[in-house]
Design a binder for these strands. Sequence first.
DNA 1: GTGGTCTAGACCACT
DNA 2: GTGGTCTAGACCACG
Lengths: 121, 121, 121, 121
Amino acid sequence: MSIQFDPNKAIYAQIVDSFYQQICSSELMPGEKLPSVRETAQMLKVNPNTVSRAYQEMDRDKVTFSKRGQGTFVTEDHTIIRALKEALAKKQLTELVHYMRNLGYTDETMIEALTKTIREV
Amino acid sequence: MSIQFDPNKAIYAQIVDSFYQQICSSELMPGEKLPSVRETAQMLKVNPNTVSRAYQEMDRDKVTFSKRGQGTFVTEDHTIIRALKEALAKKQLTELVHYMRNLGYTDETMIEALTKTIREV
Amino acid sequence: MSIQFDPNKAIYAQIVDSFYQQICSSELMPGEKLPSVRETAQMLKVNPNTVSRAYQEMDRDKVTFSKRGQGTFVTEDHTIIRALKEALAKKQLTELVHYMRNLGYTDETMIEALTKTIREV
Amino acid sequence: MSIQFDPNKAIYAQIVDSFYQQICSSELMPGEKLPSVRETAQMLKVNPNTVSRAYQEMDRDKVTFSKRGQGTFVTEDHTIIRALKEALAKKQLTELVHYMRNLGYTDETMIEALTKTIREV
DNA sequence: GTGGTCTAGACCACT
DNA sequence: GTGGTCTAGACCACG
């Protein structure tokens, strides 16, 4: 894993985003252990505190859970992961809708354009 | 206008993108004059050469045209602008399709999700 | 305000508790500004970061909201404050129930004892 | 047994409280022998004099009695234990009543809330 | 080893 | 001034 940090978004939030994508795309499976705070910090060349904050953020969202002395793990509750996927998708879709409308697309032409893209990709 | 530069993409290309968006969303109308190279350079705190390269890029794409001694103008050829819109849209759509597939969406659920988002936004 | 810190509970959490009590007992009214992070830190003789974390915790709970450059304020949403009151009450009540049961009280005698205490206090 | 000492309350009093809770919850039965002063002192990492004072306090309350050369025992007088239970309960209840009133609860809503909590816990 | 917390000191963006 | 973030380095509790 490696993240190209966007200077305008908090690093800890970008770390969260990165893990969420890995979890949603099943690169990280339910119950799987995340790399330790220190490992991740070293890998991303950031301070362990920053990674710790990211892990706590994910814990709070119940997407992960941490066991003191053992590590941080992806939740085994599929409902939560499903909800996470939907939330991420919704965010992308909303951005797209705004972008396309800004470009002059109507609801119908937008769906047409997506359908066409799906066929071609 | 102000751009938050992404260190991974050539600055001139980001300037092009920014103008293309303005043209597609009709913030810049067909035939309208773009700010001068020097103005834009000052505004973006960038070397004028970088801006000049961006303008040349847009000229080459026929999206703008330059008149010696007068400046750079948005094309009045609506076909070109329409094509530009489609190209920008296609790029976003392609990214979305990949993202959603990565999340486990099928073609049908993806279109459904878009339809739902359109209704809600 | 002054807190006698319990060495076993995170300081930031105790600061949150303290503010929550003040908000629930209307010592801090809806919309009222909390002391600044730095003020509170000085008052409690703790590091500003610790106070900041407490404030962020309250923000996340929507009990407060922060405006960059202005300060942190108690929410004006009475629903949230009501829910907070109930949550705090529930916590105390649950502890009490366990304590009283441990002492051999049954459900009826427990309620009787409370009724009697209410009359006397 | 282990006590997390609160720096604001005399240690001997906290030791008394701890034993009283054990007696009321029948962890220590009527007639049962308490650990010796030295044992308790070692266990709690406290000066034996402090424990001795706690034991004297309990003797004075007639909750325990000491036999020279044999040790300290829980009273076999159930009346006293019952009174002790009531006193502990009363203390908790009184605190609760104040806390809940501070939160804006009336006598009726307080009893309702307790009834509800009892059902749920 | 693990995560959790705290301090100290710094810089940023916003009013 | 405000809150928000990051780094650096430390200590703790848990297993």
